[in-house]
């Protein structure tokens, strides 16, 4: 189990291209994050928790689906850590598991209205579905 976790942590770090040890824990990512209040784990915590291999709470958290991928944390981080890329790597580690899609085509009709642009559906699928 421990080894699985270590392997998964390394895989997430590799897929994200992020080096979490560059983080100096200034909290600017979480200061700038527009989704902060929606999240249970915040951008700076993602960096710290992935670095320390504390993946399980992250993988079970709704925070994964609240990140807006607006890249504000990436652009404003003074150390070039790119927290949003870690959030995405953890999310992909979850939704790529069997039956773990966060959104399926069956969910869509209920969420639609007349004006909603196609772009919203397409991008939601790319973010939430294998």
């Amino acid at each position: 189990m421990h080894n699985d976790n270590t392997r998964l942590t390394q895989e997430i770090i590799r897929a994200s291209g992020v080096n979490p040890s560059k983080c100096m824990k200034c909290g600017k990512c979480s200061a700038t994050c527009p989704a902060y209040d929606e999240m249970e784990y915040h951008p700076h915590q993602f960096v710290y928790m992935v670095e320390s291999g504390d993946l399980e709470p992250l993988m079970n958290s709704k925070s994964l689906y609240k990140c807006l991928s607006c890249f504000a944390c990436i652009d404003r981080c003074p150390r070039g850590v790119e927290p949003a890329k870690l959030v995405e790597a953890v999310r992909f580690a979850v939704i790529r598991q069997q039956g773990a899609d966060h959104m399926t085509p069956d969910d869509v009709p209920a969420k639609l209205n007349e004006d909603i642009p196609q772009q919203a559906i397409v991008s939601a699928f790319r973010k939430y579905r294998k």
Binding site: K25, G27, A31, C33, H42, H44
Partner: peptide, 11 residues
Amino acid sequence: VQASDLIANKQ
């Protein structure tokens, strides 16, 4: 001003 308070874990 939007800021983070890392000790309180709050924005």
